[in-house]
Each structure stands twice: as structure tokens, then as C-alpha cells.
């Protein structure tokens, strides 16, 4: 299987879907002629032209809303946010219109759009550019949200998101764009709502998503080698819909669980997961559930401190030793 980058995997998904369905188009700032701020769409404009790759002015509210309106008539726009942080100026369009039009019309319409872009800290760009709003999206019934942790999932989830008839947010990560994974040449889809067990284990479960799942996997290996703790790592992949069964199955096996995410802890995704586990697997737990989240403050600019603020291997191991005790 070829090794390709996370960036290349997303591009392949977009390229394939543009070719599969004439209603799929990509719009956003710098996506066409500039090849994308993070080069995710590199070469697609040259290949598919102005109709399918659309450069927009810096007007997130207008082009998000335009995409939503167009989707009501059957267009399937993929809207790139240069950073997911910038979706905040389009919140009315995304969190009122994309999520609620179907409901408020009693099901008379649907909004098949994809909103994609990087949502992560860890790159010294300061608090305004480092949001991880998957919890906010998931708090809006009507929206769906996925957080691919690797190239294989990024491609498969992107294709599923584009084909889905509801609005789907795909949260990418600038720190993963250049990382490589094996991705098959044959076409495949990764369905929404299906978690992935990245590594099996018997002593402790780590539930995570996005880049944190990869850091957790690394930490799990260290825990096994240096502390003789067998760790199972569950990568959620999809936040809403959520694969509760895979989480619960793992908890019932290991009886100890910790949750790792880059969200801020208050009402983060893991607050919901923790609640769900205590409700549905209370008797299976041998220890309290612990979380490793971003340290609860706006993201620090300085690299050393931000690297400590967002979950890292050291903090995960420290917490794991506590839970496994």
C-alpha cells in the first residue's frame, strides 16, 4: 500500500468526489488559484476549473450561507475554512441555518454540505487561531462532526461526509497534514459513527480523537514497554454520530478508562463520553474516569508552553499511571 500524507489523502477524496458527482464543488479562501492555504487542494483548480474550485472573498458568513442555500437545491458544496477558528464569524449560518433549517421546516429540506478545515492548537499561532470546536458542533442537533486522526480515515471520512445528506464538519489538523500513513489505492469509505480500536489491550482503555488519538497510541506503547500496562486505544473518528458500543465494549474489558482530547475540559467532548460511560457501564468501572484535555486557558503562544498545554505523551502517561493504579 502506498504511504501518503494526510493532506494528499484529503485531496484524493475531494478529487474523486468531484469526478463522481457533478454537484460537488469546493469553495473557500485561496482554495483554487493559490492551491489552498495549506495546499490541501493543490492542483485541483488546474484539473477541474473555475466551476468546481471556487475562490471566495474573505466573507465566511456569506459563502457559508451561500453554500447552505445552494445545497437546498441539490448542490453539494465543500466549504473550506482556512482555520476552523474562522467559522466563528459564520456561526449564525452554520449553527442556525445549516443545523436547524431541516427541523424548522418539519423535514421539508436538507442541507448536504461539508465544512472542513484545520482545528487544532500546537502551532504557536495564538488563541484566536487554535480552536477545536467539535464539542460546539456536536452540541447542535442537526450537525455531524468527524475528527480523522490519520490519512486513511481522513480520506474515507471525507468521502462519507460528502455523500452524507446532512451537514458534516470535518475537523482536520495542520500538524497531521505532512504525516504519512498507508492508504489503499482502491476506493473505500469510512462510515460516520464507527470508532476504531487502534490498539488492543487489557488493563486500561484510552478513548481519544483526532491527533490526540495518535499521541495516545504512542503513549500506550511506552506504557506497555516501560510500565507493563496493557492499554487499549479507541479512536472515536466520529464525534456525532458517536460509536458508544465500541467504547463500552472496551470499558467492559479493561474496567479502567481515561479520555484524551485537545478540547478544553469544560463541556468538552469527553465530558459527554465520561457521563455516558458512568451511566452505561457504572458497575464495570474499577477506578474513576480521568481526562487529559487542553489545560483550561486560551492557547498559549510560546511553543514550550503550548506544547505542555495541549495533551502530550508525558501528561497522558502521568494520568494513565494514576488510573491504572
Amino acid at each position: 500500500m502506498p504511504l501518503i500524507t494526510y493532506r494528499e489523502a484529503i485531496k484524493q477524496a475531494l478529487d474523486e468526489e468531484i469526478q463522481r458527482d457533478e454537484n460537488v464543488c469546493i469553495m473557500g479562501e485561496e482554495v483554487a488559484q493559490y492551491n489552498g492555504a495549506y495546499k490541501v487542494t493543490e492542483g485541483l483548480w488546474e484539473k477541474h476549473g473555475d466551476k468546481r474550485l471556487i475562490d471566495t472573498p474573505i466573507s465566511e458568513a456569506a459563502f457559508s450561507g451561500l453554500a447552505i442555500g445552494a445545497s437546498m437545491l441539490g448542490i453539494r458544496p465543500v466549504v473550506e475554512m482556512m482555520f476552523m477558528s474562522f467559522s466563528y464569524v459564520a456561526i449564525d449560518q452554520l449553527f442556525n441555518n445549516a443545523s436547524f433549517c431541516r427541523y424548522m421546516s418539519g423535514g421539508l429540506m436538507n442541507v448536504p454540505i461539508v465544512v472542513r478545515g484545520p482545528a487544532n492548537g500546537g502551532t504557536s499561532v495564538g488563541a484566536t487561531h487554535s480552536h477545536t470546536p467539535e464539542n460546539m458542533v456536536a452540541n447542535h442537533p442537526g450537525l455531524k462532526v468527524v475528527c480523522p486522526s490519520n490519512a486513511y480515515d481522513a480520506k474515507g471520512l471525507m468521502k462519507a461526509a460528502i455523500r452524507d445528506n446532512d451537514p458534516v464538519f470535518v475537523m482536520e489538523n495542520t500538524l497531521l497534514y505532512g504525516e504519512k500513513w498507508e492508504v489503499p489505492e482502491e476506493e473505500y469509505i469510512v462510515e460516520l459513527g464507527v470508532a476504531n480500536v487502534l490498539k488492543e489491550g487489557t488493563d486500561l482503555t484510552i478513548v481519544s480523537h483526532g491527533r490526540c488519538a495518535m499521541i495516545s497510541l504512542q503513549a500506550a506503547k511506552t506504557l506497555e514497554e516501560e510500565h507493563d500496562i496493557s492499554v487499549e486505544v479507541v479512536d472515536l473518528r466520529s464525534i456525532r454520530p458517536l460509536d458508544e458500543e465500541t467504547i463500552l465494549k472496551s470499558v467492559r474489558k479493561t474496567h479502567r478508562v481515561m479520555l484524551v482530547e485537545e478540547n478544553k475540559p469544560f463541556c468538552g467532548v469527553d465530558a459527554q463520553i465520561s457521563h455516558m460511560i458512568q451511566l452505561k457501564a457504572f458497575d464495570d468501572l474499577d477506578a474513576p474516569i480521568h481526562r487529559v484535555s487542553a489545560i483550561d486557558a486560551p492557547n498559549f503562544y510560546s511553543k514550550e508552553l503550548e506544547d505542555w498545554q495541549i495533551p502530550n505523551e508525558e501528561r497522558i502517561i502521568e494520568c494513565a499511571l494514576k488510573v491504572a493504579e
Partner: peptide, 14 residues
């Protein structure tokens, strides 16, 4: 208002 623009965008696209 952007939704209205989107409806018109779809007409043009199609």
C-alpha cells in the same frame, strides 16, 4: 440573505 444568494448560485451552477 446569503441563503437567497445560494439559491441563485444553484440556478447558475445548474
Amino acid at each position: 440573505t446569503p441563503l437567497g444568494a445560494g439559491l441563485a448560485f444553484a440556478l447558475k451552477y445548474k
